[in-house]
């Protein structure tokens, strides 16, 4: 998932070494971050995730799980 972590690091504006399943999305998880994550998951996995479900995520691990479950 390193490509995913690199993308999430850029979206959340943190160092990639900080990105892991337990990382809290926190204040950075705004509409722009969610849109960027949709594009990231589409690019890496060619999968479409629900924007509403993404908005409910609180950690990077939850986003990963959503991406893995997407069709």
């Amino acid at each position: 998932m390193s490509e995913f972590y690199e993308g999430m690091a850029e979206i959340l504006d943190v160092d990639v070494s900080e990105v892991g399943p337990d990382l809290e999305l926190g204040e950075a998880w705004d509409s722009l971050a969610i849109v960027s994550t949709i594009a990231l998951i589409d690019e890496i996995h060619d999968r479409s995730v629900s924007p509403d479900a993404l908005a409910q995520c609180r950690t990077v691990g939850q986003v990963e799980a959503l991406a893995a479950a997407a069709e």
């Binding site: 509409s31 722009l32 849109v35 995730v49």
Partner: peptide, 26 residues
């Protein structure tokens, strides 16, 4: 005010950026 800090009313334009992007990429 929405969770991203944007302010609007029903008189103004609303865009669900995530939904529009998802539709566009599809």
């Amino acid at each position: 005010e929405d969770r991203s800090g944007n302010v609007r009313s029903d008189d103004s334009l609303f865009m669900d950026g995530g939904a529009v992007l998802t539709f566009t990429l599809r």
